[in-house]
Simulated scan of single mutants.
Amino acid sequence: MADSSRGFVRDARGCRHWGPHGAAGLLLLRGEDLLLQRRSWRVHHGRTWSIPGGALEAGESPWDGARREFAEELGSLPALRRLHTFVDDHGGWAYHTVVAEALEPFRPRRGDGEAAAHRWCSRTEVAGLRLHPGFAAAWPQLAAGLDGLDRQHG
Score class of each variant (00 low, 15 high):
Asp3Pro: 00
Ser5Met: 05
Ser5Thr: 08
Arg6Met: 06
Phe8Lys: 10
Gly14Trp: 07
Gly14Val: 09
Arg16Glu: 15
Arg16Val: 15
His17Trp: 15
Trp18Asp: 04
Gly22Ile: 08
Gly25Asp: 05
Gly31His: 10
Gly31Gln: 09
Gly31Arg: 08
Leu36Val: 03
Ser40Trp: 02
Ser40Asn: 05
Trp41Thr: 14
Arg42Pro: 11
Val43Met: 00
His44Met: 12
Gly46Lys: 09
Trp49Met: 02
Ser50Cys: 10
Gly53His: 03
Ala58Pro: 03
Trp63Asp: 14
Asp64Met: 08
Gly65Asp: 05
Ala66Trp: 00
Ala71Ser: 04
Ala71His: 02
Glu73Arg: 00
Glu73Ala: 00
Leu74Ser: 03
Leu74Glu: 02
Leu74Cys: 04
Leu77Gln: 01
Leu77Pro: 02
Pro78His: 07
Pro78Trp: 11
Leu83His: 02
Leu83Ser: 08
Thr85Cys: 15
Phe86Asn: 12
Val87Asp: 15
Asp89Tyr: 07
Asp89Thr: 03
Ala94Phe: 12
His96Gln: 09
Thr97Phe: 11
Val99Ala: 11
Glu101Leu: 07
Ala102Lys: 06
Ala102Glu: 14
Ala102Thr: 13
Leu103Tyr: 09
Arg107Cys: 14
Arg107Gln: 15
Arg109Trp: 10
Gly111His: 06
Ala116Thr: 01
His118Lys: 01
Arg119Gly: 08
Ser122Leu: 14
Arg123Pro: 03
Arg123Cys: 03
Arg123Trp: 13
Arg123His: 05
Thr124Gly: 03
Ala127Asn: 03
Arg130Phe: 08
His132Leu: 11
Pro133Thr: 13
Phe135Asn: 00
Phe135Ala: 00
Ala136Trp: 00
Ala136His: 03
Ala137Val: 10
Ala137Met: 01
Pro140Leu: 07
Gln141Ala: 15
Ala143Pro: 00
Ala143Cys: 10
Ala144Phe: 02
Ala144Asp: 10
Gly145Pro: 00
Leu146Phe: 13
Gly148Pro: 02
Asp150His: 13
Asp150Tyr: 12
Arg151Gln: 12
Gln152Lys: 09
His153Trp: 09
